[in-house]
Design a protein around this nucleic acid. Structure first.
Lengths: 221, 221
DNA sequence: GCATATTTGTCCGTATGTATA
DNA sequence: CTATACATACGGACAAATATG
């Protein structure tokens, strides 16, 4: 009959991994910054052995980079990484649209997310707009009903969030696309795969260009 | 000026991970079998701490399953997993064919691999046929020029190999498809994406059915 | 339902090798 | 070149969770 903390479901390593992942996505650590085992271990109150397991987890998720005998560093996705990420998105999300049967439950969730994002946009809550935009696309991939494909997609989205965390201002990286998302989900509900594909392609090209431009314009810190 | 073993490039954890991965793919461990930390650690001559890092690596690759406070178990891909794996393959490999520009270096490598597989088939070397068939499809995905997409594909292929390791006889799971592979690469060289897509679809459907049937027919041990 | 044995989860201390000032 | 700092890997220890009789 212990208190049983809600987050105590996972092992300590996974709990710490989640906390560090959030910090990385928020841009708390700079890109390329070295993460000393001792420092981070004492900061989070865990031993180095446990932390090394955490590092393995986050490295396999592409958020940390591992250099033998040198230690771990915050991944610093460059232009090539962004281009690759959008290549993956194009393949997977096009596949999702083509796999979209009618009245798939994920369709309703996409619609709902797009509407909520529109509301947040009008309220000027850019942080929420960004989160909902990501969520919209995650749900699009759920149209495939494939856990492995969703997992792969989550990985590249996490890396993309890492890029956003490095940028100064991200509001304009999501704001212009709410309308496209709404049009896309409408096309899907009309069973208009061709139209949906066109909307998606427009979105991906414009978004990739914007991210690349922002990345070249300059990073935080 | 030390001897500098060739395999000493990676860390010990990664070296052991590679060895265990090979054993898993060969079906050395049975599906669902529990891997005791002490036993495996002493068997490979590493400490428990190091082995736990290895387990994290292989777990993130989907080859081991992790149950908190219970230990790690050999992943036992079931029918649902096979279906999902082929769903991922369909999305990624269709994308690869559509992304295939002419005279991509990977095309020549596909051709070469398909021919070698045909030779191995005539020689009755089924093990080599299987390896080359896998390699053929890996190279197809290289048409995308996307390291992340290739990494994702490698993961599902490793899982599929795990399934094969559980089966009694795998020769008929590769043999009938050598011809399809040859036809596919020919279509690609003709710039005939539609034809290539048709060949791929035929391959995936037939292969999935064969694997599912073999899985239901029975496993090793 | 309980007591016991086993195994995992986590930490510490330490020796060794490697990179860097 | 030396010295320092750090990553790597090991073995031991103990609490907590789980399995077993």
């Amino acid at each position: 009959m212990k208190p049983e903390n809600p987050e105590d479901d996972r092992s300590l390593a996974e709990t710490v991994a989640t906390r560090i992942r959030d910090l990385l996505i928020e841009g708390e650590f700079g890109p390329g910054e070295k993460l000393s085992e001792q420092q981070v271990a004492s900061r989070f109150g865990v031993s180095r052995n446990t932390l090394r397991e955490v590092f393995r987890l986050l490295t396999s998720q592409g958020l940390l980079a591992y250099i033998p005998n040198r230690g771990v560093f915050v991944a610093a996705p460059d232009e090539a990484a962004v281009i690759d990420i959008y290549r993956v998105r194009a393949v997977i999300q096009k596949g999702a649209i083509q796999a979209a049967g009618n009245s798939h439950p994920a369709l309703a969730r996409m619609q709902q997310t797009a509407v909520e994002a529109d509301v947040a946009r009008r309220e000027g809550d850019w942080r929420r707009v960004g989160t909902l935009n990501m969520e919209f696309h995650r749900r699009m991939v759920e149209l495939c009903d494939s856990p492995r494909l969703s997992a792969c997609f989550d990985l590249v989205l996490a890396e993309l969030r890492l890029v956003f965390g490095q940028l100064e201002d991200t509001s304009h990286l999501h704001e212009p696309y709410i309308g496209l998302n709404l049009a896309l989900v409408e096309a899907l509900e009309r069973q208009d795969a061709t139209g949906a594909l066109a909307q998606l392609e427009t979105y991906l090209v414009k978004s990739e260009r914007a991210v690349l431009a922002a990345l070249q314009r300059g990073r935080k810190r």
